[in-house]
Design a protein around this nucleic acid. Structure first.
Length: 199
DNA sequence: CGGATTTGACCTGCGC
DNA sequence: GCGCAGGTCAAATCCG
């Protein structure tokens, strides 16, 4: 089984409606329930019955709408919490922009993880190319690029002021290559997360 | 020595 | 047009 990025926009969605395929194969999150928060309303989505399975989450046509998903690990002994934000900014496939052409934004996926470390091992190799202080946040935002040749995926990592234990990782673009480390990637992330207990 | 990181400068988009 | 904030570049530096 090859490993692909955890999330990617549905490529076959030719209409203007926005749907997303969630590939759970990359990180083996095949047995976790996802509670999808959408404008305050929640509905359940179960992602990835088997490692090769994909689920599609639809949402309505508001062009810049974001889905907020809260994921909880089913195992009660290993309760952690993370949320995934899907920013609906999928451009056309033509990324080489010429002069005067409108800039095409790539889809972005943001993950919130409760973790002591900023950099989670997601199986890809990243090179840092910038760091910037952001407004209303005492922690700087770091900018990374995938080091794989020809792969233009970027990610931003930022710890939030409101809750210093939470790291927001934003991915931009789609990897053009399989994941570089194939073993236990998601377990690795889980092991780096602080256990979250609501009490 | 080569690849990764740091960091100030520069670029760009956006709101006023 | 101007200023601000976010994003990127690239030279210097670090480090294995």
């Amino acid at each position: 089984m090859e490993n692909y990025p955890m999330l990617f926009p549905c490529p076959s969605s030719s209409s203007s409606s926005s749907s997303y395929q969630i590939s759970t194969s990359a990180m083996g999150i095949s047995h976790h329930d996802f509670n999808v928060m959408n404008n305050g309303q929640s509905s359940n989505a179960f992602l990835g019955l088997r490692p090769s399975d994909e689920s599609i989450i639809d949402h309505d046509d508001d062009h810049r709408q974001k889905l907020l998903m809260r994921a909880e690990v089913s195992d009660p002994h290993q309760i952690s919490e993370r949320s995934i934000e899907v920013s609906d900014e999928v451009g056309d496939s033509n990324n080489n922009k010429k002069k005067g052409e409108k800039k095409v934004k790539k889809p972005r996926y943001a993950f919130q993880t409760r973790s002591q470390v900023d950099i989670l091992d997601d199986g890809y190799r990243w090179r840092k190319y910038g760091q910037k202080a952001v407004k209303n946040n005492k922690f700087p935002r770091s900018y990374y690029r995938c080091t794989h040749q020809g792969c233009n995926v970027k990610k931003q990592v930022q710890r939030i002021t409101k809750d210093e234990g939470v790291v927001v990782t934003t991915y931009e673009g789609i990897h053009t290559h399989p994941i570089e480390k194939t073993t236990d990637n998601f377990e690795h992330i889980l092991s780096q997360m602080q256990i979250y207990t609501p009490f």
